[in-house]
Nucleic acid binder design. Structure first.
Lengths: 344, 344
DNA sequence: ACAAGAAAGTTAAACGTTTTTATCGTGCAT
DNA sequence: ATGCACGATAAAAACGTTTAACTTTCTTGT
């Protein structure tokens, strides 16, 4: 038995395939009664839309390309692990649609740029989701120039308005800084992502403004930019803790770098809470298992990821990008009091 | 300007589209000279094969379905993070082929079963990659019955031969057990994955045989099965450490449960190396950042993942599954001496 | 009563490819 | 010379769907 097509239904009902096609897509050109007949026949024979036919005819691909920047296989570092949850969240958001997530793993920014150009020009997908946005992101410009639907995980600063989802990094840093200052800290280190990333810039600016508000000096020695691996967290603690005026608090941009910071503490014999404290942004709720558990700003990654999926669907349906912009505020989870130890 | 098709090339060369099509796929029916003309014209006009046409005509999808079992969005646990690297490894292995990775995120085993049935019967992909195999896995039977190409990450025990890639769990446990016994340990806990998973069974059997070899008794109280989250590791340390005859070593099946075990140590005031030790299987090279770093059996996940990609390609080309079976031995990385502390 | 227009279907073409079948020379044996 | 096989190419159909253009029937306002 062959797989049933609209032709099967046409024969079954005595209608033409055109009518069947229209009926199935709820065209107003077909009467409700006729549609009912078609639907009945369709379910009876177990009809399922063959996407290949649609794709050839309409050029639609029913693919959403998810661009995933992951370090190459030689890089044995704990990095980008949040992608797993990100991807599954997106995938679930598309579950009831005909769209599928098509994965494009790239090694770096340049490659992502090339891949996106290809997807856009050869129309290998109907929509694109990217992350790791830069302040002025050429990929965004490529997609906007081609009027190609996309959503970014992360904001941009100099690009024209586009659909995005991101954590509210500015607010988060302000709250985190105010809280630490209030608890007596005067030397606060910021472990930031790579400096060309948009959210790195946002965080740094919020950090500087928070220092101003608190009347504290800005010291570049307390700022680090890099790939957010454990190694990055560790090395910066090793360096900064040797400063004559070492930081008493570290704000880590993710849980991987926070874990590395702990490793640095261990190496230097620093005790969390006594010598310094670590706060972190956490997507995976893993810092609760650190020893000791630390204070985090927790944004369950399922939230932004399902939004990304929902937004790309709406964007592909033509909704304007301005309506699809969300900043999510992470939840403060206080696991330590984080007060400056006066007898340090 | 429209995207060029074989029709464009036909006009350009004065040949028929049939000849062009055959020339492009190196059919012996077309003369080398003619083929050269076609190839030249194709590159000149910038021709790219339109997959939609092929798909409709041949039924091929050029999709490899990767089934990813991830906990639902409500589950805020660090689980399945290795999927990110697994997926990127697969994606890279397919890079030079026309195949793409199509992601299917599912919440549990039953759902993965349903999804696979659908992919197979509606031919939504040309090949499937699954993980989390069971001793007797119904999904494998489904795919085998339909003669559908697939590769599993993980072995099965009662199924007919199929293509797989896995860590050599048996060997790993034997080595790990022998090493701990040699270092004086007599009470060794095994934190194992869910008991229906094939590799859980393999590990348990290797564990029991190792005990026999060492002349040690088997105590069910030292065995735990569960989802390999940090919570799982933590809770089992909390429980087992209260036993009258508590374990002096814990073997954790992944780094997430090892991190959780550390959290349990911290809670109970246990000191690693003094009261007990933790060994783990590590895919992500993250245990080096634990405090202290622990001994692990490290298998960089890039190895199995690129093999999975390579194998599914070969399987789709018709290579017999028996030729596509690999067990990879993790590397022992000794970061502690792990000797039993006599003054415990 | 009749033209105009709407409503509901039908016909047919089209998307780009592969593949079966047909065609047409050409060389070869008879 | 004639027939035949063969090699190379062309013609045409097919995959499943959408959609522009057309036909038929029914409504409606004058």
């Amino acid at each position: 038995m062959q797989r049933p097509t609209i032709k099967t239904i046409a024969q079954e009902t005595g209608l033409s395939i055109a009518t069947v096609s229209k009926a199935l897509k709820h065209s107003p050109q077909v009467r409700p009664e006729t549609r009912a007949i078609v639907i009945e026949a369709a379910t009876r024979v177990g009809y399922e839309l063959n996407l290949h036919g649609v794709q050839l005819r309409t050029g639609k691909t029913y693919q959403v390309a998810a661009i995933m920047t992951a370090p190459g296989p030689k890089q044995n570092e704990w990095e980008g692990v949040e992608y797993a949850q990100l991807l599954s969240g997106i995938s679930w958001a598309l579950e009831d649609s005909p769209y599928r997530v098509s994965l494009y793993a790239v090694r770096n920014f340049e490659e992502s740029q090339a891949v996106i150009k290809q997807i856009v020009s050869l129309k290998k997908a109907d929509g694109i989701i990217i992350s790791g946005t830069r302040a002025d992101d050429p990929r965004i410009r490529t997609m906007q120039a081609a009027d190609f639907p996309f959503v970014t995980y992360g904001t941009s600063i100099h690009n024209a308005p586009h659909a995005y989802v991101d954590a509210d990094n500015e607010q988060m840093i302000r709250v985190a800084m105010a809280r630490l200052v209030e608890r007596g800290h005067r030397r606060i280190a910021l472990l930031n992502p790579l400096s060309d990333l948009s959210y790195g810039i946002t965080r740094l600016e919020a950090y500087r403004r928070s220092l101003e508000v608190a009347g504290l000096p800005y010291d570049p020695a307390l700022i680090a930019h890099g790939r957010l691996t454990p190694a990055f967290g560790r090395e910066n603690v090793l360096t900064m803790s040797e400063l004559s005026n070492a930081p008493t608090a570290y704000i880590c941009a993710n849980e991987a770098s926070a874990l590395g910071a702990f490793s640095g503490f261990h190496e230097r014999g620093l005790v969390h809470g006594r010598d310094a404290v670590i706060n972190a942004t956490d997507d995976l709720n893993v810092s609760q298992y650190f020893a000791p558990p630390i204070t985090t700003y927790y944004l369950p990654i399922s939230e932004p990821s399902s939004l990304l999926g929902a937004y790309i669907l709406r964007r592909m349906e033509g909704e304007p990008p301005e309506a699809l912009q969300t900043l999510l505020m992470p939840n403060l989870i206080e696991r330590c009091d984080d007060r400056l130890n006066p007898n340090r």
